[in-house]
Amino acid sequence: MGAPLIEMEHVSFRYEQTKALEDITLTVRKGDFLAILGPNGSGKSTLLKILLGLIKPTTGTVRLFGKDIRHFRERERIGYVSQKANSFNSGFPATVEEVVKGGLAKKTGLFRRFPESAEEDVTRALKAVGMETSRKRLVGELSGGQQQRVFIARALVSRPEVLILDEPTVGVDKQNVQSFYDMLDRLNKEQEITLILVTHDAEMVSDRISHVACLNRTMHFHGFKNEMERMSAEQLEAWYGHSVRKVHHAGAVR
């Protein structure tokens, strides 16, 4: 088992009077490929915002790389690909290269120019997502799936150890979703990047992920995915709130 990179203990979050998350305990270890599943409004985005330090939990503790999140300063170790990346201003006059380089802004630091190594970092990140030939193209000219790959490259360019993706396949056409997940799979296995994926495509990802977390304000299940397969359809329905199709696959747990 890898070292724990993310540990949440009894985390709750309230927006004024509304409870968005309640008593969430979750551990993500190095090398995990975790899918967070849950219906709309289940608190998935809130959970990610807490992990990214954008909001503070009402109660509970969060540790990143063994350090309390309140004292965690090495943001570049966690890459983030937002859902909103799908609806960015597509007329923005920037090249793929410029966008990806932007991912190095924090690491480079205020008042500094990008170092010379930035060019190589961009090349490496673009290769990892299979977009190196589009380097000089405008992002607005790319397809939704290609744009999403560019945003992943932007997150990868600072060499994060964990990559958090919020419903990355929204706006990606069906044929390309499969190859998109193939690419994530390679990042996880070959580059040993820990992945946390919030998604609706439970079926598409089921044979690639190692862990599942089922969220609906509280954590209904968290563990190896084959444990979840043993859960009955009734149990799943109970927390999801409506009927779900169980996902079967042959792959063994890594």
């Binding site: 990214l52 330090g53 954008l54 937002s82 909103k84 960015f88 932007g102 802004a105 924090k106």
Partner: peptide, 11 residues
């Protein structure tokens, strides 16, 4: 380009 990304990366 992307305000949310800027915030999330700690700028």
């Amino acid at each position: 380009f992307d305000e949310e990304f800027a915030k999330a990366s700690g700028l």
